[in-house]
Simulated assay, not measured.
Amino acid sequence: MLFQRAYAKINLTLDVLGRRGDGYHEVDMVMQTVDLSDVLWLEPRDDGEITMDSTSSSVPVDERNLCVQAAHAFRRRTGFRGGVHIQLDKHIPVAAGLAGGSSDAAAVLRGLNQMSGAGLTLDELAELGAEIGSDVPYCVYGGLAIARGRGERVTRYPHVPAMYAVLLHPRIFVSTADVYKGLSPSDFTDAPRSETMVQALAEGQLERVAEIVHNALERVTMSLYPELKALKERVASIAQRPVHMSGSGPTLYVLTPVQTHAQRLYNALRGIMKDVYVCRFVGGYAEAHARS
């Protein structure tokens, strides 16, 4: 049985450059993995079948699941015919803007690559991941990266800033499709903030990072879900620091370079909602393997 960890991500920047001819939007965003993670076990099957179980009833375990799709895509690409049972221990909130499903799919690709001995590089796995979902290529790598295009063009950076994120996941369902549909040309930019963000992180200007964070989707999400806007304002009054949104939402987060401050904020926010997490920034999977 093979163990894989699938980390959540947050968007430190998310700029939309415009609408593409294929119906997607052109994005330019900085993403960072945090140590909130799902755990997967991959067990070989002798009958060649691909099966799956999950600890979360909110997660489908059939062909709709990106993990199952990833296993099929891997077999098509490599010719591997072995079966696998995927056991998912779910900790990342579902439909939260944290790329939990994409990270799980990326973990399956990495795991099957190891199990089968196919020997694909991370770059080749990321290319394969682009067939499954826009965030999967980034999730194959993890760590700090800029993702461009519809998210599939990934530039990685080795920095692991000593930063903490306090995440809040309200029980609000956000339709990503509706959020992107609500964008107007005034939300688009030709001056993305990604390079400025990466430079601030590389130079250790951690207090400046929170000032650079930007999410072009936030205006639309907050207008569609006023209860989320009200929660953000309440959290800001408690935290006395900027409050940000990851992806299309609804997860909100507060950044701090000080662990004790993150813990105090966690304690305060637990008084107003259940799903609060203290996370630290973590490096990518390639760096983790190099250390092991």
Results as ranks from 00 to 15, higher is better:
28 D>V: 07
166 V>K: 03
173 F>E: 15
289 H>K: 01
183 L>C: 11
139 C>I: 10
191 A>N: 13
232 K>L: 04
10 I>H: 12
50 I>V: 15
16 V>T: 05
154 V>M: 05
138 Y>V: 11
80 F>P: 03
144 L>K: 10
118 A>D: 00
18 G>E: 12
287 E>K: 00
103 S>P: 02
185 P>Y: 00
82 G>T: 01
49 E>S: 15
236 A>I: 04
29 M>V: 04
43 E>F: 10
1 M>C: 10
245 M>N: 05
32 Q>E: 12
126 A>S: 09
268 A>P: 10
240 Q>C: 02
280 R>S: 13
190 D>G: 03
94 V>K: 05
17 L>Y: 04
6 A>C: 15
60 P>I: 00
189 T>Y: 11
223 S>C: 03
39 V>L: 14
60 P>R: 11
184 S>I: 00
94 V>A: 01
160 V>M: 06
166 V>C: 08
288 A>Q: 13
272 I>D: 04
185 P>L: 02
151 G>I: 07
128 L>M: 14
125 L>G: 10
20 R>T: 03
88 L>P: 00
45 R>A: 13
159 H>W: 06
100 G>C: 11
210 A>Y: 13
111 G>K: 11
54 S>R: 01
4 Q>V: 13
278 V>M: 13
174 V>F: 01
284 G>L: 04
222 M>T: 15
204 G>R: 03
199 Q>T: 10
275 D>E: 15
193 R>H: 12
141 Y>F: 15
269 L>G: 03
212 I>Y: 13
42 L>W: 12
268 A>I: 07
158 P>Q: 00
276 V>L: 06
251 T>E: 00
64 R>F: 07
40 L>N: 12
6 A>R: 02
58 S>G: 13
251 T>Y: 00
3 F>P: 04
225 Y>H: 15
16 V>A: 07
75 R>Q: 11
39 V>D: 10
223 S>I: 03
226 P>L: 03
113 N>H: 00
38 D>P: 05
283 G>F: 01
218 E>N: 08
71 A>T: 01
29 M>Y: 10
273 M>H: 05
41 W>K: 06
131 E>W: 12
227 E>A: 07
197 M>D: 08
14 L>I: 02
116 S>A: 03
215 N>S: 02
54 S>D: 01
121 T>N: 03
33 T>G: 05
85 H>K: 14
250 P>W: 07
171 R>F: 05
54 S>V: 08
8 A>N: 08
2 L>Q: 02
45 R>L: 14
122 L>T: 08
109 L>S: 11
288 A>W: 11
264 R>D: 13
278 V>N: 06
57 S>K: 14
56 S>Q: 09
190 D>M: 08
282 V>N: 06
217 L>R: 04
134 S>A: 15
87 Q>S: 14
193 R>C: 04
255 L>C: 08
145 A>T: 04
262 A>R: 01
130 A>Y: 06
6 A>G: 12
116 S>C: 05
182 G>E: 03
27 V>F: 06
183 L>F: 01
110 R>C: 13
26 E>F: 00
90 K>Y: 01
59 V>L: 15
106 A>T: 08
65 N>H: 02
5 R>H: 06
109 L>K: 04
273 M>Y: 09
241 R>S: 01
249 G>Y: 07
261 H>N: 02
180 Y>M: 10
7 Y>R: 02
18 G>W: 09
5 R>N: 05
31 M>L: 15
234 R>N: 06
183 L>D: 04
142 G>N: 02
246 S>A: 12
